[in-house]
Structures are given as structure tokens and as C-alpha cells.
Design a protein around this nucleic acid. Structure first.
Lengths: 238, 238
DNA sequence: GCAAAAGTGTTAATCTTACACCCATGC
DNA sequence: GCATGGGTGTAAGATTAACACTTTTGC
């Protein structure tokens, strides 16, 4: 932009000078994490592009002109999982020129945590599947980079903010919670230290209920305190 | 996107179905921090839109179809400050529908730290000025929100990563460094504890030089170790 | 000698880590 | 009674926070 172009002008006039630039599309890509069999999973779909035939990709879609970024992400999530009230957080925007073979598409990555037992997704159709994060070698586009970036963010978050709970059902034992943390961080944790740390955070409500149907001593059940439950209205304007 | 649209198709075909969506523009906005007179400053320009007449805004520009997001940010920085090798980090992307009066513009915010004494910007022209961060009440667009978001990120970063040094000249005393930290965090720090903490990080090189031209006892001068100096090649593919 | 900031160490409090035993349940 | 995990405390080490005196320089 030259100095000349910086002079005062109306929004309408500016719009005209912008027209050249309206040939970049923007998408959102959602790294949807789930948890099952003591493993952190991510929801992937077979790429629908010939260029990436055989590869999986994250769930994403172009942002519509009349929706903001978060709405687009929630839409992708709702379309794919049938879930509405989910944890969603923006992580990073990826804008390399050649990242999409169809043209210039800049994508904003979000990560989401859902209770894998609650969604109503039609996994059998449309090649939608849960994949163990640790087993993922290659993805379409730059989606492996996006996944790694989101995984790092998730790991950075879980000790500070009560977000990992979104991967579990409403009622859970401390063992189950610890196993979620271990799956996310991909390390073993000390049971006593873990329980102390969680107790200090004061995130949990003791339900005065016990696990059932176990072949060992049942543990107490807890729930995340109401004030920490994810609600769809989140921090920053998109 | 319906299920039908999810069938395998070539990139070329997909491009056609995308055309509807190429009416969103993307911009970058740079929160350029500087430091002077023990205050954290940010570089602002008088808004060139009638809608925001009298208000200041961040420095930004639309992203060109042939440049990635980081290149666009570096371009904005170079155009405005004449500086090339600066610290720049992506923070967040803001995509509310009505955030820009000229149309749908999604913006990715970067923050940058520069040595205010080194840039060669023509402050007198084009209403470009340094403003004390603490004095900023209202900005054009959603730029106050963007500024706050970047300031928070900066505050979260400085104890973990050697970035605050970018605000200072190459040689500095520990007092100057502490004053930078105090300006960023907007709190007073304990001198002994601050020096201990910085010493532990092992970021600094003792230059065996002293301050000069002071009306009190001069302090030793230090420089950031070479391996921590900002180079333009940065982490993630933008 | 006075003003201004440099330089420096100890103690208490907090947090983190490592580690082991008895208990309740299902089989 | 045995296998499995539940539940719990303590001690050592590391980190953080609070705090004061002597030294060097310019004037």
C-alpha cells in the first residue's frame, strides 16, 4: 500500500480497492480429540481430493461469508458429530501459499474435546473414523502440522485449565481422569501426586457415588463443578 | 456441505464449488511494541476510514494472493518501520462478521517487538505515532481487543522465552532490562529476585563493559547470547 | 558528603518429586 | 486367598518471595 492509498476514504471506496484481494478463501479445520481405550484419538475423514487419495484429513470447511470463524467451527463439529455444546479453542492460522492444491486457502485451526461415547456420528458412512493420535504418520494437506500444533496446545492447557474433562463422561473416577491425562501427555503420572494436584485445583465435585461393575475395589465418582462446564459462549470474538 | 459434495473430486472441480466463498478478504494486523521512557509503547496510525475518523488503528494490510501470512506481516513491518529482522509471532485470528465496515475481512494478529531507537520510520508523515499502551482507551475496528490479546500473549511469553530483549538496544544493563519487564508486566519487580531469575535462564552474555555518562554508579553491560537472537526464519509455516 | 543506583545472600514458605503400605472388591 | 486398583502421607529438593546493607560513581 503506497502513501497515496493511505489517505482518508470512505469504507465504500475502500471496498473497491479491496476487490483484487477477494480471491483468497478461508477455511476452518477442527482437530477433534476423543478418548477411548486409554488412548487419545482424533477424528479424521478420508480426503475427498484426488491429490491426497488414500490419505486422511482433519474435518474442515470453508467459512461462509455470513458466519464468523467460531460459528464455522461449531458447524463443522455439529455436522460431523451431532454435538453442540463442545469445547472449542482457536489455536493457529496456517496460510502458506501452496498449502491447498485447489487454490489459495488460509485455514484457522481449532481443537475440540468431545466425549467419544456421546456423539451420534455416522462413522460407517463417509469414511469418518477415530484414529489413535500416536499412530498417525501422514495426513493430507498440512494437517499433520496442524494436528501437532493443536496437540501441543492441548498439552499446555490441561494443567492450567479444566478442559480434559470434556473427554470423559459426566461421572468419572480419579483413575479414569488420570488415564486421560496420561493419554494426552503420553507419559505415566504418579497417582498420589496427581490426586494432590487435582485436589488443589478444586475443579471437582464429589458425587458420593462409587464405580460399579468392576473386578476390583471401586473408586469414588466425581464430576466437574458446574462453573467449569463448557458453555458454547467463549472468550474472544472470533 | 452435504454428503453429496463430499464425494471424491479433483482439486480443479473443487475450485469451482469454492468460488462462492472467495469473497472474504484476509488481512494481517501487527501490534508493534516498542519501549521508551520506561513505558511500553505501541505503534498506531490514524485510521484512514471515515467511520473511524479521529481514531487510531493498528498497522495492517490485506494479504496478497501470492504471499503467506508471515510475509504479509513482515511487509507491513518493513513498510512502516524500515526494519527487517524483527521478532514477530502470530497470536490470534479475528473473524467476526461485522468487524470491518468495508466488508468481510478476517484478520490475523501478530505482535512484534522492536528497538524503538533503531527504526527509521517517518513518524511525522502519515500520522504514525508511538502511544503508551496504558493510555490507549479506544481504537478503530476491534483493534483494542487485538491489542489486549497480544499484550496478554507478550506477558505470558517474557518469562519463558528471551523475547523482551528485542525492545532494547544490543547492549543493556540489568536495570534497563528490569525496567522493560516492569513496563510490560505493569508491576514492580524485586531487583535481587529478578537478577537471580535472569541469571538462571542463562540468556545473557557479560560484555565486560560498563555504562557511561550516568550520574550514579554504572552497571555492567550485557547482551543477549547469539543463539537467542531473533532471526527471521521462525517456527511454524504460517 | 550526598544522591542515585549497583551489587549481593539468607530465610521462610511453597511447590514438586519420589516413594510404600494397607484396604475393598470380584472372582 | 489372590489379583486389581483405591486410598493415603512424608521427607527431600527445588523454587519463589520477602527483605537490607555496603559500594561506586558524578556532582
Amino acid at each position: 500500500m503506497t502513501e497515496k492509498e493511505l489517505n482518508l476514504k470512505t469504507a465504500a471506496l475502500e471496498k473497491i480497492s479491496h476487490l483484487d484481494y477477494f480471491n483468497i478463501a478461508i477455511s476452518v479445520d477442527c482437530v477433534i480429540f476423543g478418548y477411548e481405550n486409554k488412548e487419545l484419538k482424533v477424528l479424521l475423514i478420508k480426503s475427498d481430493l484426488e491429490e491426497f487419495s488414500g490419505l486422511y484429513s482433519l474435518l474442515g470447511d470453508l467459512v461462509r461469508p455470513d458466519e464468523d470463524l467460531e460459528s464455522a467451527s461449531y458447524r463443522v463439529l455439529a455436522d460431523r458429530t451431532g454435538m453442540e455444546d463442545v469445547y472449542l479453542e482457536q489455536v493457529h492460522t496456517f496460510g502458506s501459499i501452496a498449502r491447498h492444491p485447489s487454490g489459495r486457502v488460509i485455514t484457522t485451526a481449532y481443537y475440540s474435546l468431545i466425549d467419544i461415547t456421546h456423539h451420534k456420528l455416522q462413522l460407517n458412512h463417509n469414511d469418518l473414523h477415530w484414529h489413535s493420535v500416536n499412530d498417525i504418520k501422514k495426513l493430507a494437506f498440512d494437517h499433520k502440522l496442524i494436528l501437532n500444533t493443536c496437540l501441543k496446545r492441548l498439552r499446555d492447557q490441561i494443567m492450567e485449565n479444566p478442559v480434559a474433562f470434556n473427554l470423559l463422561q459426566d461421572k468419572f473416577s480419579l483413575r479414569e481422569l488420570q488415564e486421560v491425562y496420561e493419554a494426552i501427555l503420553d507419559i505415566k503420572l504418579d497417582r498420589r501426586n496427581f490426586r494432590k494436584k487435582i485436589a488443589l485445583k478444586d475443579w471437582l465435585q464429589d458425587l458420593n457415588e462409587m464405580e460399579t461393575n468392576l473386578s476390583h475395589r471401586p473408586g469414588k465418582l466425581y464430576a466437574l463443578k458446574k462453573q467449569y462446564k463448557t458453555s458454547r459462549v467463549r472468550s474472544m470474538a472470533g
